[in-house]
Design a protein around this nucleic acid. Sequence first.
DNA 1: AGCACGCCGACT
DNA 2: GTCGGCGTGCTC
Length: 782
Amino acid sequence: MTATAPIKPQQQAAEPALLGLDAVQAPVTRKRQAGPVPIAAHLPVARVVLDLQPAHLDRAFDYLVPAAMDADCQPGVRIKARFGGRDVDGFVVERLDGSDHDGQLQPLRRLVSGERVLTPEVLALARAVAARYAGTLADVLRLAIPPRHARTEKAVPDAVADGGVVADGAGSGAVAAVPLLAEVAGGVGDDGGPVVAAMDGSDAGGSDTAAGGKPWAGLWTPYVGGEAFLSRVCAGQHPKAVWTPLPGLAPSSDPDRPATLPVWAASIAVLARETVAAGLGVIILAPDARDVSRLVEALTEAGVDGTVTATLTAEAGPAVRYADFLKASRGQARVVVGTRAAMFAPVRNLGLIVCWGDGEQTLAEPHAPYPQARDLLALRSDLEQTAYLLGSPGRTVHAQAMLADGWAREIVAPRDLLRSFAPRVRALTSEALAPEGPAAYARIPSTAWRAVRDALTRGPVLVQVPRTGYVPMVACAGCREVAACPACHGPLALTDAAGGLPQCRWCGRLAGGWQCPHCRATQVRAVTVGSARTAEELGRAFPGVPVRVSSSTSAAGILDVVPARPAIVVATPGAEPVAEGGYAAALLLDAAAASAGVGLSAATEALRRWLTAAHLVVPASAGGQVLLVGDGAPGPTAALVAVNPGLLASRELDDRIHLDLPPAVRVAAVTGNRDAVAAVVARVALADATTTLGPVDVEPDARGASSRALSRVGGRVGTAGGETQQVQQAALFEDAPVRVAVRVPQVDGDQLARQLRASMAVRSAKREPGKVRVQLDPEELL
DNA sequence: AGCACGCCGACT
DNA sequence: GTCGGCGTGCTC
């Protein structure tokens, strides 16, 4: 890759005489021609990546470095360059002494800033991500590097000025010891929350342990492999783990203050503290801003100095975001906590990556090329040789696959220990309630009412109601397993178009004569969600008990913490507030709807949401109870009762291996106008009759219904030349959006991505009409 | 993507 | 006879 050909620059030396001559010779017809720019004498060529949209321009270009920019024009800086008659933004990735380009090199137009925002590590990661997701480097860099904010760049103090951290070259072995604030006597509280035997912190990575111990020192002790993981991370090794945290709240350091931080957050904070103390950087990714702020709180409480952490979330404004980005890239922030935006954070000497909340939709990037945090961070941990911790109250099949193929190890608590931390979990299925007679089918059976009434004497009760807006989904009428397509095992749905027959959302086949492979029933039933009138019902049933609602659409919005007083707290999944000291009970309603979502991951998703709620309840020994109501799918129901997400995930993974479904296979979704999609797929050698599913019609966008209605009426809206309008509308309808799925064995995954990328490059070079989107491993439709 | 160059219809 | 359609091609 090193370019050795001598440059043939225009007049390299800018002698004054020549300049003068040039000026004299310049005829009046010449446009604004500045004299030849003096070029840097040493390494006169800069290889740059430009912010260009078209796929076929996804490569580096060489430019000459004007002498004036020489010193600052280092790899990683932002530049502007003339390209195709326009000034475009880009980054320098290399300085070279020559170029392999045949033509004349242009000088760089402008050096935007001397700040080296694109580190070699992030560049390598971005290239790998582009390759993996069949996208362009420019697209990935747009996700990875926030827009520059000039004022902030000047305002944020330099690392050197700040002291302690050497902001130089290839990162720092030379990180100053982290001062531990608040040497609070640690880790043991004695009411409510789980109290773990305090661990002598001395073997946690060889760092000095202050007398009196650090907060939460023993949090990793209960897990099999927990302490081993901790010490390996601190020793600079790179273990990979899938972690199922214990439920409950971590004891507050101040005995007078109630516990409000989940064990998972405290545990991650401890891990980060020890890793930083060992001189390594940390990235912690969380699914939403609320979890981020819980982690920040936990880090503070764990004794991690606030000045070494940065909070990288897109919700913060551009100035804040850029400031935090700079704190990381300048080596001041040793711990970066954030949402998706943080997965590219240029943390120096990175030693540990934590991905919390696996399974949450928000961990998937909605912008091209649609990378997903779990996999991207796993990739990063391999590239940068860092430790990796993937955690969630539940477990995705993807996490299970990491365990199954030996890439990661499991960190879980032994069963008996888990049982002592977990609440008592019961599934009030209609079968279990059969002795109650017809009342067994009530939305909230009397057993549940009694349990709530009882729990309310001890503290608040959480009531989880599935989010509204589930797309109707088909389950077996007999055993309530989600119904799958007999041809390709995609999910079946009832749509108006199919005339009452279930239709596969992947291959579009109608599943007439369907029979359940589990119980042989031939009837299916649509599963829909119950309403959110729950709060009213409960309020009437328990007069005098305050009812609070926490959801994105409720009056009070999403609540963060509720006091330890008797109250009914109705929440949608993901919006559950923490109760001080823990809830006395949780009631999980409409289990059938909750466990029958659209995708393949409906079961593990439902379990994750249920367990998330269960994590907030006090242990069984303190009377804690979780009640699941409403005949959910049997798989997640059993796993909830056993408080064992691994059980469900490993079963689901086995199923998927046998049925050739992800993650056992690699899937690419190609969505867009019918003809355009066909053209793209036609150039992909791996997409043959055996690997290609579809095309199947899809909604044009989020507001599909309305835009479809628009196109229906379209023919009549013609103003002038109604006939051509009609034709155009017909063509538009003909070219309605479709999706083709290509599924190949895992080993062919990289090649599939390569071929798709090449095909998209051809598409953009040939300017094929329409729109096409390529998405690898698209979670939401699988 | 823009912006060239380059070969075939309806206009001053 | 031109002006202008957008069909390939290039952009360091």
